[in-house]
Write a protein that binds this DNA or RNA. Structure first.
Lengths: 238, 238
DNA sequence: CTGCTATTTATTGTATACACCAAATCGAGC
DNA sequence: GCTCGATTTGGTGTATACAATAAATAGCAG
């Protein structure tokens, strides 16, 4: 309580420092994806540094990483803010997912074992649970986790990383353009997919994934909100 | 010459600072890709900060970016070094390129116009020129530039960025595992590809790109140099 | 003379101070 | 009373000082 106690705060060892950074990164990332931090929200460096108890240096590092993943936007001299995905970006992201995730299905089917299937089923179960209990944002994140894990099972770490990035951005997109009460992924879709993969039916899984992604995308109402810098010419029919 | 002149160095405005950072980033990146900085080479922060005349802060930012692109490896407490791609990584990268670049060809063919074709032909010409004048490393980089530009023409910025990353890493891989005097890309391949794309023959271009990438990959002699931590059991036939 | 331990050194990790810029606010002129 | 300009303020960009740690080295004991 007293000021005297403040300096007692034991200095975290450097090793722990790295984990701490990772934890903070995840905390911010999750907050964005689960829309506790809404698009456009400013992320001031001092505010974050105070909240997490590390200096601005560490915060900047984390913000830069998030910026490279396009979850936050870094405007020079204006600082960081949660990215507001544009309609174009949304289209690009889903096209990319289509190409990559579908392309990976045959590989995944080939490497699918009992253990992997069980793990995936468990993830799908958690997701349904979150959805039932009304935690839509959490469900969106869990759904992304599912897709990422799937990609990892392909054995291609590079592509899995790409999928991870795409899924984060997708979560953001869903949070922005998705309808309330309508999760991107149908609740049983993921289980069906596991079924195809378990039987080694790569082509079938591929086709299913294709439909699956199309379903998600078409569930979005992607209308660009031109809140900033509206086209006056258009507004006044000139 | 005299010490007195040092402080005269006018402080670059912040705006210029950003461009400076970008320039330094490109300089380091190019040096790695063109193998003037060889895999394993240590990149000490003070050394770089001295060379480029900015403080370690800026250097660290650049190194972190390069690390996220996997051109440099950041080992805690040991600093940065040029990444030495493993055989597994090489395979992943080329598999990823195969999936993405081939998948993009139909889109590229659809959006290909005269201006774009001309630009690409010019790039291919430069590449041949570099190759003829014996600048293999430069040719590798130019070849990567060609592939990146191609991906950008697909209209999908996200996938183009992925391709960019993959091409940088490919250049590094080629520099490490490639044979001297044998560039990855056949010199006339790129021109042929442009031809197919110009006539809007997406499927043909796709098939050609597939062969093209396979050719590059098979030209590599990917033998893992287990310089570090060799398997003693194997070495001594135990 | 060899192997282990203590010390030194080189280099990164972190915090902080200062410089700089942009937006917001207040004041003056029209 | 409204608009435009000067001043203040909030917040990022950069450099630098200090702390922490791992590698290198030297010293000591067996």
């Amino acid at each position: 309580m007293s000021d005297a106690q403040a300096p007692i705060k034991r200095r975290a060892s450097v090793k722990e420092g790295d984990e701490r950074h990772e934890a903070i990164y995840r905390a911010v990332s999750d907050a964005i994806v689960e829309q506790r931090l809404k698009p456009g929200a400013r992320l001031r460096e001092d505010a974050l540094s105070e909240v997490f108890g590390i200096s601005r240096t560490g915060i900047r590092k984390i913000l830069q990483r998030l910026a490279l993943e396009q979850l936050v936007t870094l405007t020079p001299r204006r600082g960081a803010s949660v990215t507001r995905p544009t309609a174009d970006e949304a289209k690009d992201v889903f096209d990319a997912r289509h190409l990559i995730e579908c392309g990976l299905m045959p590989d995944v089917a080939r490497r699918m074992g009992e253990k992997e299937a069980a793990e995936l089923r468990d993830m799908a179960r958690q997701e349904r649970q979150a959805l039932r209990s009304g935690q839509q944002s959490v469900a969106i994140r869990l759904s992304a986790d599912f897709h990422v894990r799937l990609a990892q099972l392909s054995g291609n770490a590079t592509l899995a990383e790409f999928v991870e990035r795409l899924c984060s951005r997708s979560s953001l997109i869903l949070a922005v353009y998705g309808h309330r009460g309508h999760l991107g992924c149908e609740s049983h879709d993921h289980d069906d997919l596991i079924g195809y993969l378990e039987t080694g039916n790569g082509e079938r899984a591929k086709a299913f994934m294709s439909r699956h992604l199309k379903t998600i995308e078409s569930s979005l109402s992607i209308v660009e909100e031109k809140s900033e810098a509206p086209d006056l010419r258009e507004v006044f029919r000139l």
